[in-house]
């Protein structure tokens, strides 16, 4: 449903990324890992349509409205309650206010936030804010979800819990995901396929790893699978290698 072909991206003359090929199929969970500065976030922004490519092509087999995007930082409107924040996207799409608020409440409930709809963002914990942001995106029923280290600010427990809930929603609704992360374990536990980017500038895809674990998946239990360890070590070694060697 998303195909990236020979993509070149950058902010100046020297491309950050060059010749990048990538695919996300219907309902597939795909992760993007790589050394810092390899342009992972840049790539995601281009797919989101926030950045014009210098070259190559991005083929989206869906309208832009079917794209959901979750940022690294909290970006809830501080002057709107949790419920109003979730309803915002729906209202922008033209849903009447009452119905949007009702729908928002339902999504808050689905993400374990029932009863917190009237709180302002500063009255919520970091984990709860992340859940609101997630509800805001899921309420729009996206077909492809783009995420840029969405939970990196949370501690391990909260992160595991929210990741598990995310996976349940995504698997249940058949939403495709493109996730940027620096956490290799997370990438393997969640994905159907992991792409490793080489070091920038002129970063490209260094390696692609198909991940064999069946779905529905528990992101904690999957780590006990005998294939997890070797795959993780291989990914780790490759990442170390591309981090050390200079760009071609």
């Amino acid at each position: 449903m998303l195909e990236v072909l020979g993509l070149a991206l950058g902010y100046g003359a020297t491309p950050v990324l060059e010749g990048v090929d990538l695919k996300v199929g219907e309902g597939e969970f795909v992760s993007l890992v790589g050394p810092s500065g390899s342009g992972k976030s840049t790539l995601l922004r281009a797919v989101a349509g926030l950045l014009r490519p210098l070259g190559g092509e991005i083929r989206r087999e869906f309208p832009m409205e079917a794209l959901g995007f979750l940022f690294q930082e909290d970006a809830l409107l501080p002057w709107r309650t949790a419920r109003e924040n979730v309803a915002l996207g729906l209202r922008i799409r033209g849903m009447p206010k009452g119905k949007a608020l009702e729908e928002a409440e339902a999504w808050l409930g689905r993400l374990g936030l029932s009863g917190l709809g009237d709180r302002y963002p500063h009255q919520l914990s970091g984990g709860q804010r992340k859940r609101v942001a997630l509800a805001q995106v899921l309420a729009l029923r996206p077909r492809l979800l783009l995420m840029d280290e969405p939970f990196s600010s949370l501690d391990a427990i909260l992160r595991t819990q929210i990741t598990r809930d995310l996976l349940a929603q995504v698997e249940g609704e058949g939403i495709a995901v493109l996730l940027v992360t620096h956490d290799l374990e997370e990438a393997l536990a969640l994905s159907d396929r992991v792409y490793l980017l080489s070091k920038g500038p002129r970063a490209r895809i260094a390696q692609v790893y198909p991940v064999p674990f069946p779905r529905p998946r528990d992101p904690v239990a999957v780590k006990a699978d005998p294939r997890f360890g070797p795959l993780f070590r291989r990914l780790w070694q490759d990442l170390e290698e591309v981090s050390l060697c200079a760009a071609p």
Binding site: A75, L77, R80, I92, R93, Q136
Partner: peptide, 23 residues
């Protein structure tokens, strides 16, 4: 970040003004 958020949710000038700039 708020501007980008509202934009990625599909909001144009009207929504940016109403939900981000004015408040």
């Amino acid at each position: 970040r708020l501007l980008e958020r509202v934009r990625t949710l599909g909001g144009g000038r009207y929504w940016l003004l109403r939900e981000v700039y004015l408040p």
